[in-house]
Amino acid sequence: MNKKISLLILCIFTIFISCTSTKSVANKTETPKLEKSLLWKITGNGIEKPSYLYGTIHLTCDYVFTDKLKKAFDETDQLALEIDMSNPNLQAEMMKFIFMEDGKTIQSILSEEDYTSLSTFFKQQVGMDLKLFNTMKPLAITSTLTSKMANCETGTAYDMEFMKVAKAQKEKVIGLETIADQMKVFDNIPYEDQLKTLVKMAKEGMDESKKSFEEMTRYYNAEDLEGLLKVTADQGLEADFQENLVDQRNRNWIPLIEKIAKETPTFIGVGALHLPGEQGVINLLRKQGFTVEAVY
């Protein structure tokens, strides 16, 4: 496998997770509306020093390391992300999970017409032959196409920028889950369903995807989590996918966040759509007795 493809695969877990997490369904239980902020201070419930929670977007043209971000990093001693991006074995671990099993291929799953549509679209967007990805899980294709939605030559991932800050401050980096955890989530979604979404994108054209991405980015830049949740609701996943991709992961993180926050003041960065809602991280932490306040 050439270096270019390997680098693209490295982007999968910093881009695609957030993009799928933006698909939401309506909450059955009303929760208090959140103030407009991406940064939240966690105190109470046995915490001696505050930790901070930040909603990231994994692809942006508008990254700014604000004063409130700097202050939060200065007040914390370690960085927690969805996965530990500092792991030197990260690429090797990713490669263990990126290929489909049982001899399945993209071409064998799709009809000839749909494969041709996706192949042509993929070549137009990224300049690569879809055959290079034929044995890979649809996630690899989705992530590569997602990177083309930003209207700038080089998008920035908040996760990677936060890693630079942590390294400069000689702070430990930890993950809330492993590569295996994340891949298990996506493997619960049939490849056929994942590919249907890709074919739909190919037939509609990249302009439609860019419009959705731009609208989502406007709400994100306004630090409006409620607005972001609302604007992405009409792109909703099936309820069981929402449960697997977002809600269950949020619940899995809470005991770990509670543990690390009580042990060490921590800056926690996760995809922004993991924060709001009844099953969002903010509400779940509050249910555990923590005070979670917006930082302006």
Rank of each mutant, 00 (worst) to 15 (best):
E238V: 12
K287A: 02
P32Q: 10
N87W: 10
D67F: 07
M100T: 06
I17Y: 12
F121P: 01
Q107P: 12
K196L: 06
K196A: 00
S212D: 12
E35Q: 14
F97K: 15
E226R: 09
S209L: 13
A239M: 12
I260E: 03
L229G: 09
L118P: 03
G155E: 07
K287W: 02
K230S: 12
F186T: 00
T144N: 10
T22S: 13
D207R: 07
L139H: 06
V281R: 04
A202M: 03
K49R: 13
P255I: 09
Q182E: 09
Q279L: 08
K184W: 03
M201W: 11
L176E: 05
Q124V: 01
Q194M: 07
E177Q: 10
N87A: 02
E171K: 15
E214T: 15
F213S: 03
S143D: 02
K131F: 00
E208K: 15
I47E: 05
E226I: 10
T66C: 06
E258K: 15
S24G: 12
E263Y: 01
D247Q: 08
K196H: 06
D224W: 13
D181W: 04
S86D: 08
W253G: 04
Y52C: 00
A150P: 00
S147Y: 10
S117Y: 15
Y191V: 08
I257Q: 08
L225P: 03
F73G: 02
E101R: 14
K23G: 10
K33E: 09
E214V: 15
S51I: 03
L79D: 01
V126T: 11
K262P: 03
K36M: 07
L59R: 12
L39F: 04
T120K: 13
S86W: 07
A261S: 14
F73Q: 06
G277A: 04
D114A: 03
K71I: 11
V199S: 06
I189P: 00
I179R: 10
C152E: 02
K28Q: 10
E82V: 05
I109K: 07
T156G: 04
R218F: 11
S86P: 08
Q235S: 12
G44V: 11
L285H: 00
A233K: 15
A239Q: 12
N134G: 01
S51C: 02
T43A: 07
F121M: 04
E75S: 12
D159F: 04
R249M: 04
L285I: 06
M183L: 12
D187N: 14
C19D: 13
L275W: 04
M128V: 03
G127A: 05
W253D: 01
V295R: 02
S37Q: 08
D207F: 02
A72W: 02
T105S: 08
F65R: 06
A202V: 07
F99H: 13
T146F: 14
E161V: 07
G55Q: 08
A180L: 07
G155P: 00
F73C: 03
K203A: 02
V281S: 02
N27I: 01
I42Q: 09
T60P: 01
E263D: 01
S24H: 14
F65A: 01
K164E: 05
M149S: 01
E223I: 05
T20E: 12
L8K: 15
L59A: 13
T232C: 13
K96M: 05
E214W: 09
K164P: 00
I98F: 04
T232P: 02
L90V: 00
M216Y: 14
